[in-house]
Amino acid sequence: MKHFRFLVIGVFFGIVLSKAEIISWYRIYEMFKFQSFHMYGVIGSAVILGIILFRFFNNGKIKDYLGNKINIEPKKKGFYRNILGGTIFGLGWGLIGACPGPMFILLGRGVFTILVAILGGLIGVLLYHAIKNKLPH
């Protein structure tokens, strides 16, 4: 099967997020209440190791499986898109306690009601691209 390796990485990622309770609504609520270090530890340690990893990507010490230099695509510049988009995203994340990855992992757990949120996510994407020309970026 083509892309089988990405299926395997996805399985691994889904198990990690499930087992660390990152996909539990309670953990997200607790994070925004500053009542636990757990989520900060998860994201913080992932980012610190990520910074080190990207050093090795950027200086070419770690190459991809074909031996090519690994390039990290830069994010689009702009203040409004990031602060406004981020805030809108955060409102949703705080309400349903799931960002796009966890939505699908929860579906695998048998939380079928999350399909309503996934449907909402698709509507939100359609809506953004329908009105993006009118938004400040």
Binding site: I43, K75, K76, R81, N82, L84, G85, G86, T87, I88, F89, G90, L91, G92, W93, L95, I96, A98, C99, P100, G101, M103, T113, I114, V116, A117, I118, L119, G120, G121, L122, I123, G124, V125, L127, Y128, H129, K132, L135
Partner: peptide
């Protein structure tokens, strides 16, 4: 609540150009 939360997550993530994984 679930639909609206999903809309906010979908809209906001594409407006900002990424979610928790990308940003």
């Amino acid at each position: 609540i679930l639909l609206g939360g999903g809309i906010l997550v979908g809209f906001g993530s594409r407006y900002a150009g990424g979610c928790t994984s990308g940003h």
